[in-house]
């Protein structure tokens, strides 16, 4: 029955290891860029979502609902293939010569994730007592400055646990970039499989690496939370 021979050397040395490592590098780059960008964008959307101006609120709500409820792979295709129809030819040429696969994947991951992050931060903002806004406005702060200097720092702290979730999802979602040929970790694992017929080893290795990445993210945030955020709140 057991005629499958495990060969872990396939993924622990040689060119297949190099492939997996280069895939890891791309996954980390994709995730890191999209993480920072989606956080900033999500923050902005969350603030718009709570703006005193109704049109801004409506636009932000539409943004969240649209990008949260459209499959990520569709969004990736939209930015990669769909944008072609909308952009001038010269820009398309430039993009095609500058690793647009990676760029389109980053844009899609950023926008998709930002919609979720915006909702998390919005709940975080709503969890900050409204008296904080009153105190800041009473001191002469504009709405935006009060938001930025008083409300958001507190909201983000409250938002840390769901934010970690979004970052973990983002890292895993980045594997969808392979649908447009971005050679990230899952792509490379598949590649190793189709060359070596050692799919089990290749995907086990990829799984272990994703797990390790997740632990790094969770751990980093946990340390940051304990060393920086909690003392500030006196917890």
């Amino acid at each position: 029955m057991l005629n499958y021979k495990f060969d872990w050397a396939v993924v622990t040395s040689g060119k297949y290891l190099d492939w997996l490592l280069s895939g890891l590098k791309v996954t980390v780059q994709l995730s890191a860029v999209a993480m920072v960008a989606s956080f900033v964008l999500g923050l902005a959307i969350a603030v718009l979502r709570l703006s005193p101006l109704r049109p801004l609120r409506a636009v932000a709500a539409a943004y969240v609902e649209f990008f949260r409820n459209t499959p990520l792979v569709v969004q990736i295709f939209f930015w990669y293939f769909g944008s072609y129809q909308l952009l001038p030819a010269a820009l398309n040429d430039w993009l095609n010569n500058h690793n647009f696969e990676f760029g389109a994947a980053v844009i899609a991951l950023t926008i998709y994730t930002s919609a979720f992050i915006a909702e998390d931060i919005r709940s975080g903002i709503l969890a900050v007592p409204k008296e904080q806004m009153e105190a800041a406005r009473s001191a002469g702060f504009s709405y935006l400055t009060a938001m930025r200097r008083v409300i958001l720092p507190q909201a983000v702290r409250i938002t840390v646990p769901p934010l970690v979730n979004q970052f973990l999802n983002l890292t895993k979602n980045s594997s969808l970039a392979m649908t447009i040929g971005v050679a990230e970790l899952t792509y490379q694992a598949r590649q190793v499989e189709s060359y070596s017929f050692k799919g089990f080893e290749a995907f086990t290795a990829a799984t272990v690496v994703y797990l390790a990445l997740s632990l790094v993210i969770t751990g980093t945030v946990a340390v940051y939370d304990r060393k920086v955020l909690n003392p500030a709140l006196g917890r």
Binding site: F77, F81, E101, M178, I180
Partner: peptide
């Protein structure tokens, strides 16, 4: 080599000069 999920996407990428 860019590997897509399916051929229609690969063809579209070729049509768009990617």
């Amino acid at each position: 080599v860019l590997s897509f999920d399916d051929y229609p996407q690969a063809v579209l990428a070729m049509q768009q000069g990617k």
